[in-house]
């Protein structure tokens, strides 16, 4: 039962990734693209967590944690750039 649910969930998350990617390419504005990138990070975390359960391995957790940290900082830096035209002042 769980393996069926995992396969279904992986398919749903993959579809979510594809939809975010569409928004990333389509735009139309820069904040839209940043938002799409942010969503891609979080979807990737979901994908890694599901994969970790499927492979019964805890290694993927570390990757998920790192992506969570880096993704947030990336979004922050890009927003700061839009607001100020500069990242480090």
């Amino acid at each position: 039962m769980l393996s069926v649910a995992l396969t279904l969930a992986l398919a749903m998350v993959a579809l979510a990734l594809a939809l975010s990617l569409w928004r990333l390419m389509r735009g139309p504005s820069t904040p839209d693209r940043i938002l799409a990138l942010d969503t891609l990070y979080i979807n990737t975390i979901a994908l890694l967590v599901l994969f970790g359960i499927r492979q019964q391995s805890q290694i993927y957790f570390e990757a998920a944690l790192l992506i969570a940290l880096m993704g947030f900082i990336g979004t922050l830096a890009l927003c700061k750039y839009l607001l100020r035209g500069d990242i480090i002042e």
């Binding site: 649910a5 969930a9 749903m12 998350v13 939809l19 799409a36 969503t39």
Partner: peptide, 21 residues
């Protein structure tokens, strides 16, 4: 319970991206 949580989580993730589009 695990299957329910996994499906619910994936569904919400998908809804987020559908909203984005």
């Amino acid at each position: 319970l695990l299957a329910l949580l996994v499906l619910l989580g994936a569904a919400f993730t998908l809804v987020g991206s559908v909203g984005l589009v």
